[in-house]
Design a protein around this nucleic acid. Sequence first.
DNA 1: GCCAACGTTGGC
DNA 2: GCCAACGTTGGC
Length: 133
Amino acid sequence: MAYWVLRSEPDAYSWDDLVRDGATEWNGVRNYTARNFLKEMAVGDEALFYHSNTEKAAVGIMAVTRTWQPDGDDGKWASVAVKPVRPLAHPVTLAAIKAEPKFAELMMLKQSRLSVSKVEPDEWALLLKMAEG
DNA sequence: GCCAACGTTGGC
DNA sequence: GCCAACGTTGGC
């Protein structure tokens, strides 16, 4: 069981869109590091849905429902299927994440442009605590 | 709107 | 294969 952050601009595809759709194919990732993480994902892995740009906060929890399949025509890219699990009671803002010293090593902070990043179990637990506590 | 970070491209 | 130039992204 692994944990991830998946980032999207809410203007392009938001948590509400995902809830409305009931599930989605997380495609369009065109970065090799991010793609490699998509290929690592297993069914049952959980991921935070992070709204970049206008909102800058994690707003919900998703689950991976199918491992990767090719995305695009050239076979270089990958996508996975996800579904919403539940919204966060309190969205965790980027500002709150940056203010917490325990997130110093959080990949999402260290590689701020990466749209798919990994979360360690202890980091995941703390994120959920902040979201639901 | 600007800037920093960083990935990609193209010339050598 | 290296590196400068350029484009894109995300945060401020």
